[in-house]
């Protein structure tokens, strides 16, 4: 992201289930209010929600940063959690380390990261053990 975005805002993500999903709803509602490309809104809604849930479930809290430009939206999701030991494996559909409790709540299908990748036009994941995880996503209009 070299250009200054027209809109930029950070949304904190708390590490508790009670408020889980709130940040991605805020992100989505801002795009709706702008009247942004509906395809982008749909994909951002799905990807940001999944990423936020991962931050809540595994990352112990973090932050979503959204930058909106005329023809694309950048979303960065970061946490300072334990990190992902094997990223390749984590990206495999169906792979999950979710606990019994999380599964009871309907999570743990191992579809989050694959769905995030599917719904974004650019997908970069960085993770360092003991430091945290960062997703860099780009969503392009008409893409």
């Amino acid at each position: 992201m070299t250009d200054q975005p027209l809109f930029k805002k950070a949304f904190p993500v708390k590490g508790d289930f009670a408020s889980a999903g709130e940040a991605s709803v805020k992100v989505k509602n801002i795009l709706k209010d702008i009247g942004y490309d509906s395809g982008v809104i749909r994909r951002v809604a799905v990807a940001t929600y999944e990423a936020e849930m991962n931050v809540v479930m595994y990352g112990g809290g973090g932050e979503i940063v959204m930058a909106v430009n005329a023809d694309h939206v950048n979303i960065i999701i970061v946490d300072q959690g334990p990190g992902i030991p094997d990223i390749k494996q984590a990206l495999v559909e169906g792979y999950s380390t979710a606990t019994e409790e999380m599964r009871e709540m309907g999570f743990g299908a191992g579809m989050g990261l694959p769905n995030i990748r599917k719904n974004s036009n650019e997908f970069t994941i960085d993770s360092e053990m003991g430091k945290g995880t960062r997703l860099d996503l780009v969503f392009r209009c008409g893409g």
């Binding site: 027209l6 809109f7 801002i30 209010d33 702008i34 009247g35």
Partner: peptide
Amino acid sequence: PIKAIQKSQ
């Protein structure tokens, strides 16, 4: 659309 994003900011 551009103005809408700016207004959001």
